[in-house]
């Protein structure tokens, strides 16, 4: 530890350069994480809106309907079942159409509306299996859900998550190489020292230790700087955005920043250690 600190100061400019590079890359990483988590939030919200509607046979009494509702609620994977009577449905329509009530004329009389159950799944991927089971319930005449919409949303969100992960991994590898390059320079500068250590019987792990600590400290400094800057920027952004558009599905600064911050600092330290390990590996083959 003592030796690592001494080295960081001795190679001041070099250390500053690598900590800065780390900070910049980790900032990109942090922004990426925040964007990804926000998109995930939106995606989850959209996914949760996928609703299955089970229409009941004509003439089903309210008691019978409620019994069917309870049966539907017992199906595994069902989060919530709401009974929607004809009257409720009409009221909802009226509310949606607002001042264009004229369009609704006759809907009520012609019996276009039916009693139904609105069913939400605990997980969107359970929807299809759930639909099959609801269909079998006695008293259910028809089950409707937006199959295509469900699968489209699915494809979009999983693609998004995949792309985010790929980008994060690429960045991580790039940072590891940057760190290993910087540390390699300090190792070359200390080649004689390492040679003497090896000659007198220092173990590999003893030789390695100060360099790994050095990498971890650089990673820590870089990541804390990155998190600080990104956190400050994000809280400001969120504050002003929510003031202008309160319904924007954007995640509040906390606890998002705490988890992203912890993750980025952990990554920084880890990448710093890994980078050192890579560059010293070559020098130990004496």
């Amino acid at each position: 530890m003592r030796q690592a600190m001494r080295n960081i100061f001795r190679n001041g400019l070099m250390s500053l350069a690598s900590a800065t590079t780390m900070a910049v890359s980790l900032m990109v990483m942090a922004v990426l994480l925040i964007v990804a988590m926000n998109l995930d939030n939106v995606a989850t919200a959209v996914e949760n809106q996928v609703e299955v509607r089970a229409y009941l046979a004509d003439g089903t009494q309210k008691d019978a309907a409620l019994a069917i509702r309870d049966k539907a609620a017992a199906i595994p994977g069902v989060a919530k079942v709401t009974y929607v009577s004809k009257e409720d449905a009409l009221a909802q329509l009226k509310a949606q159409f607002g001042d264009k009530q004229g369009l609704l004329e006759g809907v009520e009389e012609e019996g276009a509306l039916r009693d139904s159950l609105a069913i939400q799944a605990t997980k969107p991927e359970l929807v299809e299996g759930l639909v099959a089971q609801v269909r079998k319930l006695p008293g259910v005449s028809e089950v409707v859900f937006k199959k295509e919409l469900v699968s489209k949303i699915f494809r979009a969100t999983s693609l998004l998550r995949l792309a985010g992960a790929a980008l994060a991994i690429t960045l991580g590898v790039a940072m590891m190489l940057i760190i290993s390059n910087t540390i390699r320079l300090t190792i070359i500068a200390r080649g004689a020292e390492i040679g003497v250590m090896k000659m007198v019987g220092a173990t590999d792990s003893f030789v390695r230790r100060p360099f790994i600590v050095e990498g971890m400290v650089l990673g820590f400094i870089g990541s804390v700087a990155a998190v600080g800057l990104v956190a400050a920027a994000y809280s400001r952004l969120v504050g002003s955005l929510l003031q202008a558009m309160p319904y924007l599905p954007i995640l509040p600064a906390m606890p998002l920043l705490a988890s992203v911050g912890t993750l980025v600092v952990a990554l920084g330290v880890l990448i710093g250690a890994a980078g050192s390990l890579i560059s010293i590996h070559r020098f130990l083959k004496v």
């Binding site: 090896k198 000659m199 007198v200 019987g201 220092a202 173990t203 590999d204």
Partner: peptide, 10 residues
């Protein structure tokens, strides 16, 4: 490889 340091200590 791991035994070499201990040879060298002697």
């Amino acid at each position: 490889r791991s035994a070499v340091p201990f040879l060298r200590r002697g």
